[in-house]
Amino acid sequence: MELEPRLFAEHLLAGDDVAALLYVQKALEHFSHTDVYEHVMTPAMYHVGDLWEQNKITVAEEHLATGVCDFVLAQIDHRDPPAAEAPRVLLCCLEGEEHYLGLKMAASIFRRYGWHVRFLGPTLPLEHVLKDAAQFQPQVIGLSGALAYRIPQLKASVETLKAETNADIIISGRTALIYDLGAQVGYAAATIASLEALENWLEDGNEGTANATI
């Protein structure tokens, strides 16, 4: 079986949640969850974004695609409860950042590795991240900023979180793939450039690696 993100994107844009889910379930017979996230869902959603850029689909269709992709992602997510002593990760998008699907995929990968995951979704003001982190006491906080113009905000947020929590900070998002985000935020955070990189980071054990750019 060859992975066909364009075909999956067609199901998303048609609002066909059944076909989209069946496609992914079939893919999972041959590929890992991370493969499906990285090589089906992510490129499919990038394609949807490109179609919007080119005015070939409407904003409504883009939202429909996001909703169906979110549904599929939830259906195939891992839901065994983590061990009480398992590490904790808090994941959120910066204030104003609506692109949360990539981070939701990251949440799913953390769960598969047995972590306690607190996924806080899109556009969360930093003060609420801090409040929540004070309660949840995560070892790792993951921030996502998909768009380039979030870099200054991402940098400031990392600095605040480093100063006010004990967590290691990881950052991700499409921007991380294009620009050297690690250099921008300095050594305060680890850049996770892809979901596969996240999986490697989790497999290798992340102790003491949070200062590396992955």
Binding site: E53, Q54, N55, A148, Y149, I151, P152, I178, Y179, Q184
Partner: peptide
Amino acid sequence: YTAYSTGEAQIFLDYTDWLVTV
């Protein structure tokens, strides 16, 4: 501002490409 604060002119040039398509 992002290009200025990061010293990456390319951020604005990439944005311009995106803008042209949109």
